[in-house]
Design a protein around this nucleic acid. Structure first.
Lengths: 338, 338
DNA sequence: CTGAAAGCGCTAACAC
DNA sequence: GTGTTAGCGCTTTCAG
């Protein structure tokens, strides 16, 4: 345990070659004879050699690690299946590479300071920014660091830096489709349970329904939640207090929609008989709900894998094009009058 | 952007001192004159200097970073408030230090490989292992790396290495108390909805109820879930199929207990009239449920802060003592016959 | 208190 | 193909 770690020097000695050759084998350069390669590999096994990542990074300027930046408070973050899926997508995308993955928590001020230290070309080669906020405090940090960044969602006004790319969905169009659907199904007093005020995606979905409803849109019938079930439940309560005869609700997340359903059940309001409901996300829980939830599908997991692809492309010196995946409405029972 | 980053050399030149002095200021050594310190600080501001972490680590052997190891599949992990709380505790604990925090995902084989690379004395100074499994595949990796590890929960048979410590709760005793309570309240056919088979904590809770029930314990009345609501719902369904006249249920998590409540509501089984229910965790959702959930409280957040304290102590060369926090029963409506 | 200098372990450019 | 060598940017003796 106290024993000194084997270095490249030790390996070279054991293999009877020079440091340079060992390094070449390590970075599998083509300019190595089979014999030398074999000898080095054996020596690595014997010595239990593991490269010192710092020495390597110091000399090469690479880190072989990317960071995933998380800028929402823990509870909000951790209970949201969206993040789980996004992260799975990222994990999937990374499988094809040999990059390391590091999660950077930046939900509180203190965490932001800590994370800022890590957003540095000498720590991570690139950053994937999940859950961007409007006027996101970490965007300037990313820009200043010079690290390439892929934002999942809206990067905010005037792209922070030339090394920022985005991959997202048609949030606004999704909201629009949901709004149109509610209207078509006959809803005339449509309420909205939006997500966190500062969440970029939520704002776009809200703009979308507003577009769809036009004059029928009532700004008084908008409540904000945190994407969670409980917040949807409470928001629905407030909406019902204010407007007992509303006949449609668009929720910016499926979980809030489920909370809203629950609240209405409690109030003996029939869905879809009295009120039509549309969610957003298309998570499993929505399909299993009673009534089955109409929702706007977005390919979250795919966004994750794409983010990785774009980032690796950027690391390779390419200039990836921003991607926007289409959302589409999934009509189920909660929005269709029987 | 393309501009070369300022190095310690630049700072030294601007400040009119030597590299050594700058380094001393950076590591706030006491052996520096006020004048020199001020000059260096000014120069740092002017040049926008930021230390190169790799160079620093290479020279010093420290990393100033700890890793949090997560060995459960994403969905399971991310929807569990327990992790959120644990992580908050860790975040809190870290606030007093200037250590960086890095989350290491190791839920799949691929992720495990990736994480293993990072569990290395040259990457992280220490590891906090959340959610240990029985025969956890990452424990040998941790041991082999020589990195100090604090395990939140049971480290498994024969402590992996002399540099492993644990902080946990009296899981078994908690299960025992729950079991006793159910008996005292008159339950005679008690079922158990345990957590994942390989989760160390879940196993202990199960052993605890078994202790309490003694001869009344029926191994056929045990089902396993993944700590999630849905899995509790389904497990309850299976139990009811098998034993429609059970009169008590202990669930290894509050979320599974809520799922079980839901399932029983569906079957028009009255809680606590027909069946008594006890959960585990004491999450908020349980207190808000109908009926309010009796549960076993464990100080999760505190476990997180303690893990950090133990780890920093270990990094400081001390040998912290393992900690076990007491659980206690919180009696609410779900387990008390009216 | 401060400067000089010797590494930390590795990569990459340069000879051969 | 392979060995040699000059750094990468910092910490940490060791003198002074």
């Amino acid at each position: 345990m106290t024993e000194r770690r084997a270095t490249i020097e030790d390996v070279a000695r054991v293999a009877g070659v020079s440091r340079g050759t060992v390094s070449r084998v390590l970075n599998d350069s083509p300019r190595v004879s089979e014999a030398a390669r074999a000898a080095v590999q054996r020596a690595i096994g014997e010595t239990g050699y593991r490269a010192n990542p710092h020495a390597r990074s110091l000399a090469s300027g690479r880190n072989d690690t990317i960071g995933v930046l998380l800028t929402r408070p823990h509870p909000e973050l951790f209970e949201d299946p969206t993040f789980s899926l996004l992260l799975q997508g990222i994990s999937d995308g990374l499988a094809a590479t040999d990059l390391g993955l590091v999660l950077l928590l930046a939900g509180t001020d203190d965490e932001q300071r800590r994370a800022a230290r890590f957003i540095d070309p000498r720590h991570v080669d690139g950053v994937i920014h999940i859950s961007p906020l409007i006027d996101d405090p970490m965007m300037p940090v990313c820009a200043a660091s010079g690290v390439p960044v892929v934002v999942c969602g809206d990067a905010g006004n005037g792209r922070a830096s030339s090394r920022t790319w985005t991959v997202g969905t048609t949030d606004r169009l999704g909201g629009y489709e949901a709004g149109c659907h509610l209207r078509e199904q006959g809803a005339t007093r449509v309420a909205v349970i939006a997500g966190p005020e500062r969440a970029a995606g939520s704002r776009d979905r809200l703009l979308g329904v507003r577009d769809a409803l036009g004059g029928a849109f009532d700004p008084d019938l908008v409540e904000h939640g945190d994407y969670g079930r409980e917040s949807g439940f409470r928001a629905m309560g407030r909406l019902l207090d204010r407007c007992p005869d509303l006949d449609g609700v668009f929720c910016a997340s499926d979980r809030m929609a489920l909370g809203a359903l629950e609240r209405m059940r409690l109030a003996h309001i029939d869905v879809p008989g009295d009120v039509l409901v549309v969610g957003f996300d298309d998570h499993e829980i929505g399909a299993a709900a009673t009534p089955a939830l109409t929702t706007v599908h977005q390919p979250i997991r795919r966004i994750g894998t794409t983010a990785v692809q774009m980032l690796t492309a950027a690391l390779g010196g390419e200039n990836p094009t921003d991607q926007v995946f289409p959302t589409h409405l999934v009509v189920r029972d909660s929005s269709v009058r029987r």
